[in-house]
Amino acid sequence: MPPTPWPSTALFANYAEAWQRAQMGRMLINSAIVALGVAAGKIAISLLSAFAIVYFDFRGKHVVFWMIFVTLMLPVPVRIVSTYQVVSVLGWVNTYWGLTVPLMASATGTFLFRQFFRTIPDSLAEAAQLDGAGPLRFLWTILLPLSKANMAALFVILFVYGWNDYLWPLMITNTPDMRTAVIGIEILVPRTSQLPEWNIAMAAAMMVLLPPVAVIVAMQRWFVKGLIETEK
């Protein structure tokens, strides 16, 4: 049968089948919770740590910064065993906490915000100080609005990263109702001993692919702005 350029009538049947077989609804919700949680958590934590590093003088500031920076060089697989241990001691195995919290600290995010904050003239902070704004008010009313584009760019990157993460959710979840979508596809991927049902697997992959694409398209304008321009 020659391929046709448009979908056949089996299209929707395939999607429906994939949806059913892998509890796709539940897994997409799990993925959304993980990706949103990780992205939001990473942004909040790196914003605050960059704020501390750039705007406060404290003993050991440089040591702290370099320690954060060094963790950039340690990929997740290297520290996965010890992280798992910590999570299991906390009783977080197979919970949303376990899925998100260990991934929240982000050297990349901290570094990105630090670089951005350093392009903001000190006098902006000093002027706020003169007007009587404390550090948190400065962060909230001035630094945060100025960082919008950066936050959006980081959000897109982190959302996609959190959505696509495979290793950690695989380790930390052990029931089908906690699985994320990326792991779910794996269930549908044909085994050698079975009749290959690529149609179902591809339909599932398509569904899993759509949310990150939607996020990128929706935030594209901000994303590009955050990456190419440093607003003063």
Partner: peptide, 13 residues
């Protein structure tokens, strides 16, 4: 005190 900075330091947003 009131101060005017060399780069004005107006908050751009």
């Amino acid at each position: 005190i009131g101060m005017v900075f060399q780069n004005y330091a107006l908050w751009p947003h």
